[in-house]
Design a binder for these strands. Structure first.
Length: 427
RNA sequence: GCGGCCGUAGCUCAGUUGGUUAGAGCGCCAGAUUGUGAUUCUGGAUGCCGCCGGUUCAAGUCCGGUCGGCCGCCCCA
């Protein structure tokens, strides 16, 4: 084993993995497109300040997980730990205020300095959907619907469960927080160490603690639902009605609290039991205060991010690539002719492997290893007649085909094998 | 950041109570008519036994550290 190692928590995507990765991204992109979302890309690093102000100084993501560094000009920069902040910044930077609502899709790498585990890496990748400037609950429904469709198209929705909650508007949230802190402070002695720390930083997190002692305390804790004001309750009800009408199954989870400070109203997660401790496959929510928080005009926002690596672990293998056709020339004249033929066929969109090394046996072995569907054998005998030998590598059948009819003949063969496949490849 | 398990060919693994040149399967390479593959047969190469240090006459086997992986906590996608 070589001592040349990748950085901890990073991974190479070799062709087989990359095919699944691309399948996930392409599926999400296609679904987002059907909802009218347009793709954007923002830089992979930003001023540290952006994340500190946007995500919240006291969150774990900002306080202990950021890859921050000083550039040569002395600016503090940070590799993005998530994609939302950068999109909001781009919205403000480019003055897109009169293009609202903006429905955006993006995908790319994010970085967090964490201990790697299954479904958790230091460089990971997300697909991401954001809608800016749409404060209506119908938009929450649409955004969740996009996520459900992506999972459906990847054939993993059945193994996931959608959980939704309302964190309320800022007024409700502040009122609840106060009641909650009072309650937990009164029972401080019974809380776990982790939860005592959470008490000043993010008291709502105590609600979904896994500690048994905490759970006992939680049983008597005031409920967020009781502290939502009328507007917040109505908003959440509207979202639920919309999900019902869309036929999207969900479960209200009153303990669902997300770790980033910017969430208001709707918070949701698609979770699965198939990925160990990292069960969240897609997570998101509404963040109406975020853009103002980072210095832009007050603008509503809602979105979600999905972990591509986590989705890859659940998703089925993508449809196979088109199998190549191997051209097997023998002799110098044939090799010259083959170069030209290969270029012409590729220009027509066919995948061509030119087998130019070794004797015929080697060349066919190579064609076979590359899973070529056919070999086009051309030697002196064929050249003289203006034909090639077309060999079907699955059936072993071989026949002579005129050079100028080769492409048509390959099409005929492709149709034939397609109808065979339809017969027996159904899962 | 905290706790547990693990680290032997490209891959999956075996290596007896520490004892000579470290093994298997798969894969890879070559050959069995120098114009016919995927099946078969024969042969071959492959390893700083993760790394550093310690104990010992002797370490892949024991001890410590370190790097990496896996699992859980924290947190999140």
């Amino acid at each position: 084993m070589s001592k040349l190692q990748p950085v901890r928590g990073t991974h190479d995507l070799l062709p087989a993995d990359q095919a699944i990765f691309a399948h996930v991204v392409e599926t999400a992109r296609a679904v987002a497109h059907t909802y009218g979302y347009r793709e954007v890309a923002t830089p992979i690093f930003e001023f540290t300040e952006l994340f500190a102000r946007g995500i919240g100084e006291t969150t774990d993501v900002v306080s202990k997980e950021m890859y921050s560094f000083e550039d040569r000009g002395g600016e503090s920069l940070t590799l993005r730990p998530e994609l939302t902040a950068g999109i909001c910044r781009a919205f403000v930077s480019n003055g897109l205020t009169n293009e609202l609502p903006l429905k955006l899709f993006t995908a790319g790498a994010a970085f967090r300095y964490e201990r790697p585990q299954k479904g958790r890496q230091r460089q990971f990748h997300q697909i991401d959907v954001e809608v800016l400037g749409a404060p209506e609950p119908e938009c929450d429904v649409e955004v969740i619907s996009v996520a459900a469709d992506v999972l459906e198209r990847l054939e993993i929705l059945a193994r996931c469960e959608l959980r939704v909650n309302s964190l309320g508007d800022p007024e409700s949230r502040a009122a609840y927080r106060k009641v909650l802190v009072d309650y937990y402070t009164a029972h401080r002695g019974r809380l776990s160490e982790d939860s005592i720390r959470r008490l000043d930083r993010n008291p709502m997190r105590i609600l979904d603690s896994k500690d048994e002692g905490d759970r006992a305390v939680n049983a008597g804790a005031p409920s967020l639902a009781d502290h939502l004001n009328a507007a917040s309750t109505e908003f959440f009800d509207a979202v639920r009605r919309g999900l019902d009408a869309s036929g999207i199954a969900y479960k209200v989870d009153r303990s669902l609290v997300r770790g980033l400070d910017y969430y208001t109203h709707t918070a949701f997660e698609f979770v699965t039991e198939h990925l160990g401790a990292q069960g969240t496959v897609i997570g998101g929510g509404r963040y109406d205060g975020l853009i103002e928080q980072i210095g832009g005009p007050p603008t509503a926002g809602i979105g979600w991010a999905g972990g591509i690596e986590r989705l890859m672990m659940l998703a089925n293998a993508p449809p196979p690539d088109d199998r190549p056709i191997a051209i097997v020339p023998l002799g110098e004249a044939a090799e010259r002719q083959a170069l030209k033929l290969a270029r012409e066929m590729r220009a027509g969109g066919l995948a061509i492997e030119l087998a130019y090394k070794g004797n015929m046996k080697r060349r066919l072995q190579r064609a076979n290893k590359l899973q070529a569907s056919h070999a086009v054998i051309m030697g002196d005998a064929e050249l003289a007649k203006g034909v090639v030998a077309l060999k079907n590598l699955d059936s072993g059948e071989q026949r002579e085909v005129a050079l100028d009819e080769l492409v048509d003949e390959l099409e005929v063969e492709a149709m034939a094998s397609l109808s065979d496949l339809l017969g027996d490849v159904r899962d």
